[in-house]
């Protein structure tokens, strides 16, 4: 395995124009604070964004018709067992068992009730159950890494899972993503739709990661970092993390609600 790594490194270094972490750091520094509280769509340090971001400003419109509503999900869609990513296969997955829970609210503090939350993530070794992830870390036959749940009447979601590992990617030489869990969220209105990533406190890779840093406002970035909560940790079972989420976007006024 070590030999393979050496070959890969040699491949990289033979490319004269190879981009190093130092190059990316400089680019990240130049763009610090340049965007608002949402990620910059145009963020060249994340190389794949270069040809995939719109160059024109988004057009501000008042939501109408279907946009005033969100799709509805319920018990017909999601089995409660889907919230436990550690029981999907025949055996126990490897890694650090954890629970992540939190409350989803809209901009006015109202809970997002009975709504769908989907997650996907790498395993403890930083490997995704995905054909495209070919980096030489082991797959875990007992961990797929995808789950779903519905929020309760107070907007609370909860997942049992395994803490994901960091993993390498090819944005630049020696690029590594901080450990994260992908979250897909719906609100009470179509305009609140959000897909994002939850991170873990104190990750040393934060400053080096162009995806995390595409949110150039540090206060906004912090909102994606869960907090460790010992009250959620269970004896001899799993560590607890809390991550509350506020969804942006418009909402119907109470008068318009049916």
């Amino acid at each position: 395995m070590e030999a393979k790594y050496r070959v890969a490194a040699a491949d990289w270094s033979s490319v004269a124009s190879v981009t190093t972490q130092a190059d990316i750091n400089r680019e990240i520094d130049q763009l610090r604070g340049s965007g608002g509280p949402q990620p910059r769509l145009d963020y060249p340090p994340y190389r794949s964004s270069v040809l995939r971001h719109p160059t024109k400003d988004r057009l501000l419109v008042d939501p109408e018709g279907v946009e005033l509503w969100a799709p509805a999900f319920g018990a017909a869609d999601v089995d409660s067992a889907e919230a436990d990513l550690t029981i999907q296969r025949s055996g126990e997955p490897l890694g650090e068992r954890m629970v992540v829970t939190g409350r989803i609210t809209d901009g006015e503090g109202r809970p997002v009730r009975n709504q769908l939350v989907e997650i996907w993530q790498a395993n403890a070794s930083g490997r995704y159950w995905h054909q495209r992830d070919q980096h030489p870390a082991p797959l875990d036959p007992n961990f797929v890494g995808a789950g779903r749940c519905l929020t309760d009447d107070d907007g609370v979601y909860s997942f049992q899972t395994i803490k994901p590992g960091a993993y390498p990617w090819r944005n630049h030489l020696n690029a590594w993503r901080p450990a994260h869990i992908h979250f897909s969220l719906f609100g009470t209105d179509f305009t609140q739709r959000l897909v994002t990533q939850m991170y873990f406190p104190g990750d040393p890779l934060f400053d080096l990661d162009p995806i995390y840093q595409s949110i150039t406002d540090p206060k906004a970035r912090d909102l994606l970092v869960a907090s460790y909560d010992h009250d959620l940790t269970t004896p001899e079972r799993s560590l607890g993390y809390r991550w509350d989420i506020v969804l942006s976007g418009t909402h119907r006024t109470p008068l318009e609600e049916s």
């Binding site: 996907w120 995905h130 995808a146 992908h182 942006s248």
Partner: peptide, 18 residues
């Protein structure tokens, strides 16, 4: 602003979304 910012779906969304 306390709204959660978005992030890319990345290359491995087939695991969680479709």
């Amino acid at each position: 602003m306390s709204f959660a910012p978005g992030q890319t779906v990345g290359p491995f969304f087939h695991l969680g979304l479709p």
